[in-house]
Nucleic acid binder design. Sequence first.
DNA 1: TGATTTTTGTTGCATTTACAACATAAAAAG
DNA 2: CTTTTTATGTTGTAAATGCAACAAAAATCA
Lengths: 150, 150
Amino acid sequence: MTEILREIGMIARALDSISNIEFKELELTKGQYLYVVRICENPGIIQEQLLDLIKVDRSTATRAIQKLEHNGFIEKHSDPDNKKIKRIYPTEKAERVYPIIIRENDYSNNVALDGFSDEEAAIVLDYLHRIRKNIETDWESVKKGNKRDY
Amino acid sequence: MTEILREIGMIARALDSISNIEFKELELTKGQYLYVVRICENPGIIQEQLLDLIKVDRSTATRAIQKLEHNGFIEKHSDPDNKKIKRIYPTEKAERVYPIIIRENDYSNNVALDGFSDEEAAIVLDYLHRIRKNIETDWESVKKGNKRDY
DNA sequence: TGATTTTTGTTGCATTTACAACATAAAAAG
DNA sequence: CTTTTTATGTTGTAAATGCAACAAAAATCA
């Protein structure tokens, strides 16, 4: 009964594909919208926390952030108290595209939940949240090199 | 309220990341397990149907299938009645890895649904199926070049 | 304190991904 | 029956992705 994994994969790829196409006109290439929204909502966030919000490899995050900085969407500032970390802040350019991204995401959300009652929508959010919490433990472990037994 | 999109994205990326790491030892590189399972379950399927089961770009599917063929996991046969299509079949090698993939996916499924009652698990599957049906219409439309109004 | 482990971040390399543009066969329209 | 449209598949190019290996600062340990 691996059905839910397949459904989730199909939904995620379809939604991501749609967003990537629609955000081209914002000068955002593949996947970058993910970072922009999180940075706008968490100004001063560091890369390691950001990557955990998205579930992406550390090196992928490094390069996505480098590109966003190069294109003027974000700024990185060294923390005076901790030389190891770099805090990431949105620029005005990011703040301008943020509401557009949210509007698109909200629209997709409504399409996805078409035919759902408010109650059902609340339940599915709760369930997905629980699934995510369940799976992120394994993700962190496997990414660290641990093996799962099955 | 774009929460469900984010949860789905996180879950999908985490699960895919885990699977890709775990299937390296099967000589399957990134994403290939997706194709292998569908081809094993639908021998004779054509690329266009396959890509719709996965929600991936046509060119991506072409190259993934080329690689699977090159590595001996699948075979492509021209259809005698329709010169346009090529039917894809699993080889013995694919049949050998298939149960291993399923076992891993089942395990991840169980991890994901930890703490869910049977009833809740049934509900979440139903909801995800509905969400997928809702979103795939837009995906097909946007991929064809149509614009969404929002 | 000094040694060791963990956290955070970057780069080298190989690979996947996908938009565009194309090709050809089949189906539909006229 | 010819023309047009749709379905199916491939390649060129550019870009993202991620593992492995590394570096350095911070935190933990002994």
